[in-house]
Design a protein around this nucleic acid. Structure first.
Length: 726
DNA sequence: AGCACGCCGACT
DNA sequence: GTCGGCGTGCTC
């Protein structure tokens, strides 16, 4: 919600709706340059700019040109507006070179950004002229360019791809309306509820006095987190610097936004979320870039927001998969904000009710300090957590009849006397993982420790990573030889739960319809993870069903993820002192379950981390997934010069090459079987791996049509730090 | 991706 | 001797 220019000055002198592009140009006094977008004038014979007549341009064309710049001549008439950072259109293609007499200029018009103005070019051929300066707004400043390049390098992607994520599409009207007057900084804040944390007040104080502390913050359960983030932002603003907050979805964004408004008043911050329209998105973004707004709250695209004098970056709930962008090169908010904190030497705050292994690693390496409350504070804020394991269920006659454990039934009934009760039900579609029937140890490959999977219709097992078949599996931990796969039956259980309490209203919140809040009156609130409404005054109790389905996913993160979702739900429950109780239906001996009972997410993450280190898993080692049609993948691997310490696992057929947002035109036709390899390198070789992958992809694309005959000119898909490693 | 340039076979 | 096939490489 950035402030808008109150008076709608200067709009449309002639009435009607002028071409947006023209508006900007006219305003900046480019005479006679009535430059229609469809047909810019040709500049043949036109005089060139007297100073710095060369514009170095980043051509916005995906992978093809890679990260090279191209030089163009700057016509004198564009001299004023053709400044570094502006959007331009240029002719690009073989035809444009042919400037011989009489011939038309060929080559398509494509978009780009001026990166630099120079006195001369190293290019020896004749330079084509810039076709058009789309707008005088310098959207790509040097800081953003550097950040985008760092992200591109880190993720083996192209600069143009990253810029597409970082700079929203232009909207002419927004350009004329975005605010540009900076507000006065607020006063230094009171640390408020930050006092509940050991070094909380110090952290806020450091920000307010211009410092750049870095912290991994384990938030106490309850609703105060949004206000705490707002106070950290306020402190940063008070120091005269800007702040950026990235949250997983629109709901928490609205919470932080509201908390900021309550603290600072209207108009101090911009809200950058995906669901805003193009015009609004660009307008808010521009207000940030112009320095009119110093604080930004948003979802993942906001991680690139060009905040002036950045003093603090914040990520909330870094384990939420929404923090991973789904466009190439798939950057993750946490990693990008780490890059920004390091480059801009600004503060860094990673907050969550839970703790990812990556967050634990930031603390372990000393990059960030832990920001935690002591045990007493935790006990005072957290609900009581009780478990129902298989043993309990087996002994529980009533449970088998009612499909609901006696303990759960009792807790729900008691809770409903005092307020709403939350029931968390896993979503359908969770693929269960194979585990030892006796001790629940996940079944892993003997060669590479990847997850074993049952093949369709067959009894044979196969590794999900390296594809090696496992004929005679037995449990490495207890010697058992029987496997089990957990099946989900949760929704039905929830329905029956409603029937068990007929007098109570049942409300549901899920993918189709997400409830934001529910009143404090007794009700059963059935929700899938991530969609839990906030209850006024907190839930009296919560029931976490089918823990097995959550823990049983064939994913390295299954345990961490289950714990994160349980803690997120449990954080909406009243403290134990106020009667808040949580029942989790899962084996009490399992590590994530114990971590929930003890409310110790950090301990869980630290143990996970050391185990990952032992097994050579991310994030201790770096991994990349490369997928594509089998021939393309094979060609890619044959041409890639991977670092010597790289280990290639696979290829294995990949199930989900089907339709989806990740598919692009020109990719494999639907139904074609894709393959995937995982490549892992030890700590320290991550950059080398990314560089090698990028080079190999570049070489492959440059070969272009020639390669088509020898097995696919198709690009393979590269994903550094894949989220879903089995 | 386009698009032009060039080397080779077929045709007036 | 010239037209045009498509194979190859470049795009400021």
């Amino acid at each position: 919600m950035s402030r808008e220019n109150g008076a709608d000055a200067g709009e449309g002198a002639g009435g009607g709706v002028p071409e947006p592009e023209q508006l900007a140009l006219i305003r900046d006094s480019v005479r006679k340059a009535k430059v229609p977008r469809a047909k810019p004038r040709t500049w043949r014979g036109a005089a060139l700019a007297k100073e710095l007549p060369v514009a170095r341009v980043l051509v916005d064309k995906g992978v093809l040109h890679l990260d090279r710049y191209f030089d163009y001549a700057v016509p004198e008439e564009l001299d004023e507006v053709a400044r570094p950072g502006v959007r331009v259109r240029v002719r690009f293609g073989a035809g444009s070179r042919n400037v011989r007499e009489g011939r038309r200029e060929g080559g398509g018009l494509i978009d780009g950004f001026i990166v630099e103005r120079r006195a001369e070019s190293e290019y020896t051929g004749p330079l084509a002229a810039l076709a058009q300066v789309v707008s005088p707004e310098p959207v790509l400043d040097p800081g953003l360019l550097e950040l985008a390049r760092a992200v591109a390098d880190r993720y083996a992607g192209s600069l143009a791809d990253v810029l597409q994520l970082a700079i929203p599409p232009r909207h002419g009207r927004a350009e004329s309306r975005a605010a540009s007057a900076p507000p006065a900084p607020p006063a230094a804040p009171d640390p408020g509820t930050w006092r509940r944390y050991g070094h909380g007040a110090d952290f806020v104080g450091a920000l307010a006095s211009g410092g750049s502390p870095r912290a991994v913050w384990t938030a106490l359960p309850g609703p105060q987190w949004a206000e705490e983030i707002a106070r950290a932002v306020q402190a940063t603003l008070a120091s005269g610097r800007g702040a950026l907050v990235v949250v997983p979805t629109g709901r928490p964004a609205a919470r932080v936004d509201a908390a900021l408004t309550a603290l600072l008043g209207e108009g101090q911050q911009a809200l950058l979320t995906a669901d805003a329209g193009q015009e609004r998105r660009y307008r808010e973004w521009l207000s940030v870039r112009r320095g009119a707004v110093r604080a930004v709250v948003g979802t993942r695209a906001a991680m690139f927001a060009p905040v002036r004098d950045l003093g603090l970056v914040v990520i909330w709930d870094d384990g939420d998969p929404n923090h991973s962008d789904d466009h190439a090169p798939f950057p993750h908010v946490r990693e990008v904000l780490e890059l920004r904190a390091a480059r801009d030497k600004c503060g860094f705050l990673l907050g969550s009710w839970s703790c990812t292994v990556e967050a634990a690693q930031l603390v372990e390496t000393g990059w960030a300090a832990p920001l935690v409350a002591d045990r007493e504070q935790v006990r005072g804020a957290a609900p009581l957590v009780r478990t129902v394991g298989d043993g309990d269920l087996a002994r529980d006659e009533a449970a088998r009849a009612a499909r609901l454990p006696t303990l759960a039934w009792k807790v729900v009934r008691e809770g409903l006397k005092h307020g709403p009760v939350l029931v968390q039900v896993p979503r359908r579609g969770y693929v269960p993982r194979l585990a030892c029937e006796r001790c629940r140890e996940p079944a892993r490959c003997r060669r590479c420790a990847g997850p074993l999977e049952a093949q369709e219709g067959g009894a044979a097992l196969r590794c999900g990573w390296c594809g090696v078949a496992e004929a005679e599996w037995h449990c490495g931990s207890c010697g058992g030889f029987r496997l089990r796969a957990q099946v989900v039956g949760a929704k039905r259980t929830a329905e029956e739960l409603g029937r068990a309490f007929p007098a109570v209203p049942v409300r549901t919140s899920g993918r189709e319809q997400v409830l934001d809040t529910v009143p404090g009156a007794p009700a059963l609130v059935v929700s899938t993870p991530g969609a839990e409404p906030v209850a006024e005054g907190g839930y009296a109790a919560a029931l976490l069903l089918d823990g097995w389905a959550m823990l049983g996913r064939p994913d390295l993160r299954a345990g961490e993820d289950a714990l994160r979702r349980w803690m997120a739900a449990s954080s909406l429950v009243r403290p134990q002192g106020a009667g808040g109780t949580v029942v989790v239906v899962a084996e009490p001996t399992l590590r994530p379950v114990q971590a929930l009972v003890r409310w110790d997410p950090v301990g869980h993450a630290v143990r996970e981390l050391s185990e990952r280190a032992e097994l050579g898993f991310p994030p201790v080692s770096r991994m990349a997934a490369v997928s594509g049609p089998p021939e393309a993948l094979a060609g890619f691997l044959a041409g890639a010069e991977l670092p010597p310490d790289a280990v290639v696992l696979g290829p294995v057929p990949v199930r989900d090459a089907g339709p989806g947002p990740a598919r692009r035109p020109g990719a494999a036709p639907v139904g074609e079987q894709w393959e995937r390899v995982l490549i892992r390198v030890p700590p320290g070789s991550g950059a080398a791996l990314a560089a090698a992958l990028k080079t190999a992809q570049a070489a492959r694309m440059a070969r272009g049509a020639k390669g088509a005959r020898e097995g696919g000119t198709e690009a393979v898909r590269i994903r550094v730090d894949p989220l879903d490693i089995g």
